[in-house]
Nucleic acid binder design. Structure first.
Lengths: 142, 142
DNA sequence: TATTGTTATACTCTATAACTATA
DNA sequence: TATAGTTATAGAGTATAACAATA
């Protein structure tokens, strides 16, 4: 059940504003998935992979917070698009490593370009505010 | 297609950190939906409604950025749970107004409690940082 | 004719449970 | 026996197209 811890009004409001920021970006994300011929879950799955280093399916499931059986279907889709390849691991033949293809890496970069695209509301901030925002968030997440 | 506008590194990084913050809250949101017996889309739909004022289905579809035919199923689910009622509009009998029931309003409050729950990373900030964060976001979204 | 909402259809997402193959 | 991944199954999300009722 949800904890009912009360936080100071300031941070409460800040978090609410962050939510608005995210909601504003949602239509763009959905549109880009469509342009790339991917469903949103497939898009997030590709984004969760590492183009530099093959990843076990198990680990992808963990990163997506979903069941392994679900990942099977998502990877099927990505593989059908030629974006990912399954490769058996040498040390344990039960494990299937996910290799991002060259084309997959390219699509992934385009996804990242959009996901990381700064919302207009933040872009319009002064350089000083932008730096302050970064510094505060660094302290929060660092 | 994604614009490739380059933003200063600071705000770029800030937005990326905001993304991490959101991703951290995802498992909790999914868990709460399960606890309330709702699917995530049903949960967001209920959250998008106004307990004070009936809303046409059309408007709900717009707020959720999805097709009207989709909303039919979502509202069916909420109605089956006794959280929402369809009521015909007086001025135009084609329109169906969505009324949040008393129980629906209660569930909606619990959803909001969780959605608005401040992530630990933000809660751990100093009071000064929390206020500064709020002020910057107000300037961004105001 | 145009609009609101539903229905029919098809495909995808998602979890659970049972299964295969490895270990 | 335990683990990685698949398959079978069932229920829900989603959009498109066709439809009914109303404007």
């Amino acid at each position: 059940m949800a904890s009912s811890v009360k936080h100071p009004a300031a941070v409460q409001e800040a978090w609410s504003l962050v939510g608005k920021l995210f909601w504003q970006m949602r239509p763009r994300l959905l549109a880009v998935a469509g342009e790339l011929g991917l469903t949103p879950p497939q898009m997030f799955a590709l984004r969760a992979l590492d183009p530099e280093q093959p990843v076990p399916m198990r680990e992808l499931a963990a990163q997506l917070h979903c069941d392994s059986s679900n990942v099977t279907g998502l990877v099927d889709g990505l593989e059908a698009h030629g974006l990912v390849e399954r490769r058996s691991a040498q040390h344990d033949r039960r494990v299937r490593m996910l290799v991002v293809t060259e084309r997959g890496a390219e699509v992934r970069r385009r996804i990242n370009d959009v996901v990381e695209e700064v919302p207009p509301a933040l872009a319009s901030l002064s350089a000083e505010d932008q730096r302050a925002l970064r510094d505060i968030l660094r302290r929060a997440l660092g």
